[in-house]
Amino acid sequence: MPALLEIQNLHTEFRTGAGTIHAVDGITYSVNAGETVAIVGESGSGKSVGALSILRLIPDPPGRITQGTVLFGGRDLMTLTEEQMRQVRGSEIGMVFQEPMTSLNPVLTIGRQITETLEQHRGVDRATAQKRAVELVGLVGIADPIRRLKQYPHQLSGGMRQRIMIAIALACDPKLIIADEPTTALDVTIQAQILELMKDLTHRLGIALIIITHNLGVVARYANRVNVMYAGRIVESGPARAIYHTPRHPYTIALLRSVPRLDRPRQARLDPVEGQPPDLTRLDAGCSFRPRCRFAIAACAASRPRLEATSNPGQSAACFRADELASLTGTNEAALAGAPA
């Protein structure tokens, strides 16, 4: 069965005063029906631009999608008309963003925002839309739906607004939801509520989910597969278990080592990823992780490694030494215990 979403060699750039930024620099990945794929990486690594590019929501100028195909259900989204694209956005792919306040319309009631989506994309009448809105708001765990539908976004808490965003994303029975940092602005108990809700609904309704986050715990709990991004590229990709237990890219290894864990004895000292995040206007021809990499060799300065299959089934890494690293670091258990690099 072909994948639900297949992204091939996608490039998005921004023209800025400081030069052209290759925010997304050739990413390729796929999402199968019903599965949850996580995108992790530090801020500025291209996670959001990558997601917005799928939906063709890049502000132009200064941004431009310069290359690539995005096959969704067999069609290349890059070749659709703007009108067809609007239909895809509202009804085939749902979206949930970090700050629901900015994606909700402040002067429309919650109810109107949901019914509007339904009327536009489903062509149903007001009464049917109203009935469905009540169902949807109940589905996302909001008590007293009829009263809530009459309220405005500012009258709701952050967690409640995010539930509404999920209801809107679900309104037209999408096959895919893209959630960009859906819980980053929320408290941990509310984060847990929202993530469990999304997991439950996507499983029950068979919806695929792309979840963008920088929280490695969230990825471990919810993702089937993981793409790790660094400086506009996917540097490692594979099943969640493989990424956590046998990481093959030095950035992934360093990232996993740097976080303190509540389920492990307290370490004497944390083991940070050294150095600074990359400046995308000043990348050279070599591997972009090189300035921070403990494993760099001369070849790493000459050209950029491509994302290639490793000796682990289903796992790819963009590192010249990916397969060597398996023997250099042993398992992640050893790496986390502080085995010499």
Binding site: V188, T189, Q191, A192, N215, L216, G217, V218, V219, A220, R221, A223, A240, R241, Y244, H245, L256, V259, R261, L262, D263
Partner: peptide, 12 residues
């Protein structure tokens, strides 16, 4: 404490 997911798929 229960709401904090641990960065390990096997644990989670």
């Amino acid at each position: 404490l229960a709401a904090v997911p641990v960065p390990d798929p096997d644990v989670e």
